[in-house]
């Protein structure tokens, strides 16, 4: 327990609450990198995921891709990109984006897929255009699962951003690696506790957000949402050809 007290003492040491190597700077770095990565990954993955979710095309590819990414060791990816691009902020950002895309993509397309096919068929039947179906039906109904995807992406980013200081990205990971090199366990522990706190806070915020975005009238039953109706593929393959008639 003494170690824990030392770590807290380290965190609240005035010397560490300011300055170029202080906690605020590192925290801002960590948050900036994380947010930037989340935005970039979302800009790429959400439209792509919506496209897959709406058309049903490329679904099996997306599924195996997102599944396969689980096997990719994050540390290895960080290092290989760093060796390729050199030390700096670009390499970690690229590596983090690559890691954040799969969960966001999965959240986007599974959000669309989880919608009852009859809801979409009836939207089509009342005369909505495909664009209107996406905007007025699929996006709002798919939001909880998309937020879920963003949630796991953010966890992944915060965790890997910690690791990213191994290739010089800065952030809260810096305390861990500096502590590691100088055998300063209280600094390592302090850095770890800060990262854990950050991760748990983000988890809390997203949990709240996920509750808030469920449209009123839709029962918030995550399990039932995920259990995609199996009629899915037939309905999707059928619709575009019917439209062209």
């Amino acid at each position: 327990m003494n170690l824990l007290i030392d770590a807290f003492a380290w965190i609240f040491d005035p010397a560490h609450l300011g300055g170029p190597n202080g906690i605020p700077i590192r925290l801002v770095q960590h948050l900036t990198i994380s947010l930037a990565v989340l935005v970039i990954a979302s800009v790429i993955a959400i439209p792509l995921g919506y496209l897959i979710g709406h058309t049903g095309r490329g679904r099996s590819l997306a599924v195996s891709l997102t599944g396969g990414f689980r096997a990719l060791p994050t540390l290895g990816l960080l290092i290989i990109v760093a060796l390729w691009l050199g030390i700096g902020i670009e390499a970690p950002i690229i590596a983090l984006v690559v890691l954040a895309i799969p969960p966001v993509l999965a959240g986007a397309y599974s959000g669309f897929e989880a919608i009852d096919r009859r809801t979409i068929d009836s939207a089509r039947a009342v005369g909505m255009t495909e664009g209107q179906i996406v905007r007025k039906v699929e996006v709002p109904l798919g939001l909880p699962l998309l937020i879920g995807g963003l949630r796991s992406a953010t966890l992944q980013i915060i965790a890997t951003a910690t690791l990213a200081d191994y290739v010089g990205a800065g952030g809260l990971g810096r305390f861990i690696f500096v502590g590691l090199k100088s055998n300063d366990y209280s600094q390592m522990l302090a850095g770890s506790l800060l990262v854990i706190a950050l991760a748990l806070i983000s988890e809390g915020i997203f949990a709240l957000l996920q509750k808030l975005v469920v449209p009123r009238g839709v029962v918030a039953n995550q399990n039932a949402d995920v259990r995609t109706p199996s009629s899915r593929r037939v309905a999707v393959v059928g619709s575009p050809t019917e439209e062209r008639k």
Partner: peptide, 16 residues
């Protein structure tokens, strides 16, 4: 919540 804890910090906290 446990699952939300990043791996490297967990590896450092576990020893205590």
């Amino acid at each position: 919540l446990l699952y939300a804890i990043p791996s490297l910090p967990l590896l450092i906290v576990l020893p205590i």
